[in-house]
Computed example of a mutant assay.
Amino acid sequence: MTMDPLLLTGEVDAATDRLLRTAATFDGPDLAAASLLPAWSRGHVLAHLARSADGFVNLLTAARTGESIPMYASAAARDADIRAGASRPPEAHLDDLRRSADRFAEAVAAMPVEAWTATVQARLGPWPAAMLVWGRLREIEVHHVDLDAGYRPADWPEGFGHRLLHEVAASLNGRADAPPMVLRFDGSRHELVIGDRSAAPTLTGAAPELAAWLIGRSPGTVLAVTPDGPLPQPPEWI
């Protein structure tokens, strides 16, 4: 998968379309049902996806104008917006998702080439503006799974699953709380090593399944472990 932000926009559009098709199937009770995220309903997840799109618009605007604009006004404001939007009727959720996605697309289109070299202040710290389109794609694909409505990591586009796996593995390498492990893709000799290889079990599976397990979106039951034994316990993802 390319990391060129402009070439990734088609992936974002396709992921958004898949998300909207799922969201369009929800009625009121569906939205109130639990998601895969603790204490969040499906309505919370959809409200978060809409507000995070606006957060990415803020960061794109900061990169374009040079102004210091945070992703969210504050952590408390972010949480309050999600709570306030969670219980809306299905039509309001769909309209908000569509409109916020359009605002994101417009903000990407407004970016001059030089603005992609900027660094912006994301929720967890400084981030290259060139990574913002990837960040939005990752948000959509992962939270679509969190809706627990039939969309699974196996449904992720192959390029997305590979890119996510590489990103998460790189972020874990060197962390004191990350257990050693070797991640090997099915049907490939390519592998990713986290920590001390000499003490590491080898986990084999499809790239999306490995990535989903590392970020806590899968129990890892489809992964093979060599030598035979329990799966390691990866630390909490972002």
Results as ranks from 00 to 15, higher is better:
25 T>W: 00
11 E>T: 05
75 A>S: 09
131 M>V: 00
63 A>C: 03
153 P>F: 12
145 V>W: 13
130 A>K: 13
111 M>C: 03
208 P>V: 10
83 R>Y: 03
24 A>E: 10
170 A>P: 04
219 P>K: 13
205 G>F: 12
3 M>Q: 11
154 A>R: 15
47 A>S: 15
212 A>G: 09
50 A>W: 02
122 A>N: 04
97 L>M: 04
104 F>Q: 04
46 L>T: 11
232 P>W: 00
8 L>V: 08
146 D>M: 05
120 V>I: 02
23 A>Y: 10
53 A>Y: 00
47 A>C: 08
57 V>K: 01
155 D>C: 05
42 R>M: 04
216 G>F: 13
177 D>W: 07
28 G>N: 10
209 E>H: 14
73 A>R: 12
186 D>H: 14
208 P>C: 12
174 G>L: 07
133 V>P: 10
71 M>L: 02
43 G>C: 04
80 A>I: 02
17 D>S: 15
116 W>L: 02
61 T>H: 12
11 E>N: 09
55 G>D: 04
169 A>N: 03
177 D>C: 09
231 L>F: 04
141 E>I: 14
33 A>D: 07
30 D>M: 10
107 A>V: 01
30 D>H: 07
107 A>M: 03
53 A>C: 03
135 G>M: 12
72 Y>A: 09
49 L>P: 01
180 P>W: 03
206 A>V: 01
150 G>C: 06
219 P>W: 10
7 L>G: 09
56 F>M: 09
221 T>V: 09
183 L>S: 10
236 E>D: 11
152 R>M: 14
98 R>L: 04
227 P>G: 02
236 E>L: 14
224 A>M: 12
105 A>Q: 05
116 W>G: 00
195 G>T: 05
41 S>G: 13
27 D>S: 13
27 D>L: 10
52 S>C: 09
52 S>E: 08
79 D>K: 02
107 A>F: 04
46 L>H: 12
234 P>W: 00
236 E>G: 08
138 R>M: 14
145 V>S: 10
186 D>R: 15
142 V>E: 01
193 V>L: 12
1 M>I: 02
58 N>I: 05
229 G>P: 01
70 P>C: 06
187 G>M: 14
7 L>P: 00
182 V>Y: 04
131 M>D: 13
30 D>R: 10
14 A>H: 12
184 R>I: 08
164 L>P: 05
158 E>H: 11
66 G>T: 13
121 Q>C: 01
237 W>F: 15
180 P>K: 06
176 A>Y: 05
230 P>K: 06
40 W>C: 05
115 A>M: 02
140 I>A: 02
97 L>H: 02
68 S>H: 11
119 T>Q: 06
19 L>F: 10
51 R>L: 09
232 P>Q: 07
178 A>D: 07
